[in-house]
Every structure is written in structure tokens, then in C-alpha cells.
Simulated assay, not measured.
Amino acid sequence: MKAGSKIAVVIPCYKVKKHIVGVIEAIGQEVERIYVIDDCCPEDSGDYVNTHCTDPRVHILRHVVNQGVGGAVMTGYQAAISDQMDIIVKIDGDGQMDPRLLLNFVTPILQREADYTKGNRFFNLENIRTIPRTRLFGNAILSFMTKISSGYWGLFDPVNGYTAIHRDIARQLPFDKISRRYFFETDMLFRLNTLRAVVMDVPMSAKYADEISNLKVSKVIGDFLFKHMRNFVKRIFYNYYLRDMSVASLELPLGIIFTLFGTIYGGVHWLKGFESNIPAPAGTVMFSAMPVIVGIQFILAFISYDIASVPDKVQYIRYSPTSKTDRGSL
């Protein structure tokens, strides 16, 4: 770790009174400040920490109204940025995330390999056995949707909340637009892609004991699907038409047009042939099949280009913990 680097930890607190003090006690001395955000917790987590924790690094921030995990993290980010912290790590307060892994998330950022790191519980196949099957299945679906909407095709486990971010990237985030609730982690990836930030998965294991997850995948799949589609459209517009244009900017619309034309044209003539019991002429079949084939090829070419365009250049210019003029390049 580079000398003089300032690391902060943000811990959103909502119904985690039983675990929060243990989480704080497990955080190593490499961390300079710990922000505990009492998100209008019905268990008064902030007061509980204030009473039972004597760690001088702890700063308690309180929300009068519950803002969700995203709102709590944004509050922590803004406090850390204001205090000139260099790396901001987010850890949940329910005891599922091992604070001893913190440097695994921080090191790639300090070594200029990433702007943002996140956990991946699926990297080690042996650890997958400890994950409940419903979470495993739900995560697989959410991961695929996130790859499409965020543009980070190599990432997995998108709802993993163990993350770290460089200050120069965090302060460029649109805090008022990022999702405040359970879509927070995946919406963050979409926002990071618009900043062209480098994101890296960090292998980790998760602990499942007596904690109760507030996220029910079966109840959020529909809402997540809509938001992923919205983010996908935004990302394509920002990256391929507003910010820049390339061959891929033509491939996607042409692919959609050709595919839809061939499908509709062929479908109409198939219905006519079915009703009249007269097979469609070979020319009609070819005239409907060719646009579909060409359209699919255009779409596949676009996807290939999109996968190859995953951000791979760290965005902050240099790492200088003491500099007040250190800015990102965006």
C-alpha cells in the first residue's frame, strides 16, 4: 500500500444491530476513517454504535428518512470526499463480508489497475456450494442482465456490495441520479461505464449465518428488468451516438431493422400460406430469410464490438494523497 494513502470505510446500517460492532472491530488499522450511516434504522444502530464502540475512527451519520442502501452509501461517499479520503470501501453491516479482505479491494486501485473494485462470490467453485440455490439462480439472471445494461461483460455477481472506489471517480458520480434502493450496485456499474471507469472483480467468499437479507430476488426481477432495459438504451445512446460514433453505431440499428423486416414479412406470408394452404414461393422465403440472416450478423457484430470496448484505461491521472489539485481525466 502506498505511503500516505487515506482509506475510508462506509457501512450502511439498517437492522444490523446484532453484527455491526463486530464488523467495526474487524476493520484493520490501515483504515483511517469509518463512516457508519444510520439509515433511519428502527434498531437505532447509530446510538448503539455510539454506546458500544470506542473506536476513534468511527463517524456516525444519520438519516432522518430511510433512503435505502444507495442513499446511505452516497452519504458516506460525500463525507469521505469532503474529508479528502483517497479510497472509499463499502462494507455491509450484517457480517457477511470479511473486513480482513479489504486490502484485496484497495490494492488494484492503488496500483492503477482499476478505478472501482467489487466482490465476486462465484470465482471459487468450491465456495459456490455455500451459497443458497435461490440466490445462486437469481444472481445468474441479474448478472446476465447487468452485463448487457452496464457494458461490463466480464463481471459477475452484480449485487455484491463489497466495493472500493477511488475518490476522483466517486466525486464525478451523479449522486442525485443513482438508484437509492436495491438496484444501487447495478446502477453504479452503468454510471461507471458512462465515466469509462475500469472495474475489476475481486474473488471473495461470503458467510451465511443468521442474518436476514432484505433483498428478495423474486420480487425485484421485474423492476430490475425494466431498469436494466432503460440503462441499456441510455448507455447505447451515450456511448455510440452522443459521445462518439463508429461502425457499431450503424450495425445495431441496421441489424434491428433488417431482422424486424424479415421476421414481419416472412410472418405475414406464412400466415397467408397457412390460410390458403398454398406454400410460399421460394423467392418469398428467401426475401424474408436473407434480411433476418443479415440483421443477426449485424447485431452479433455490434455485440462483439461492445464487448471489445469495455473500459481498460484507469481514469484518474495520478495518485497523490496530499494534492488538492488531483483530478480525474474526464
Rank of each mutant, 00 (worst) to 15 (best):
E30D: 15
R327C: 10
R121Y: 06
N139D: 14
M1P: 10
D38P: 00
T134P: 03
M74D: 05
P291D: 04
S5M: 12
A206I: 13
P158E: 06
V233M: 09
A280L: 14
T117V: 05
V159R: 06
A280I: 15
L136H: 08
I178V: 11
G70Y: 03
R112D: 09
G154L: 07
D47H: 09
C41T: 01
P158L: 05
I257Q: 06
Y319N: 10
I278N: 11
G266Y: 04
I293H: 07
C41H: 00
V9H: 01
H19T: 09
R100H: 13
I293Q: 07
P158N: 05
R135M: 09
F224L: 15
I165Q: 01
R230C: 09
A170F: 02
I91P: 00
T284P: 02
D223W: 13
P158G: 05
M290S: 12
V106D: 05
K6N: 07
V292R: 14
P281A: 11
V73Q: 07
G95E: 03
T134N: 13
S5K: 08
T259I: 07
F226P: 02
F175C: 10
I148D: 01
K2M: 12
Y152A: 00
R235Q: 08
S329L: 13
V268A: 10
P42I: 02
L61M: 13
G255H: 02
D326G: 08
N66M: 11
V292H: 03
R57S: 08
G267N: 09
G295S: 07
I296L: 15
Q96I: 08
G262A: 01
A72P: 00
D223E: 14
V294C: 15
Y241C: 06
K90T: 13
E113F: 06
G266S: 07
T54K: 13
L254P: 00
V310W: 04
E251W: 13
Q78C: 08
G68Y: 01
V16L: 01
I169K: 06
T263V: 14
V220L: 12
I299H: 04
Y241D: 09
G154R: 15
R167L: 02
F144V: 07
S246L: 03
G161I: 02
D47G: 14
V106L: 09
G328I: 07
P281W: 11
N50L: 00
N160P: 07
D92Q: 07
F298L: 11
V268K: 10
V159H: 10
N124I: 12
R235M: 15
G255C: 01
F123E: 14
Y116V: 15
L102A: 02
P291M: 03
F261N: 03
S143I: 01
C13E: 01
V233Y: 10
I91C: 02
I141W: 08
Y208P: 03
A209K: 12
G151S: 02
L61G: 02
N120A: 12
V292Y: 04
V23M: 00
R318N: 08
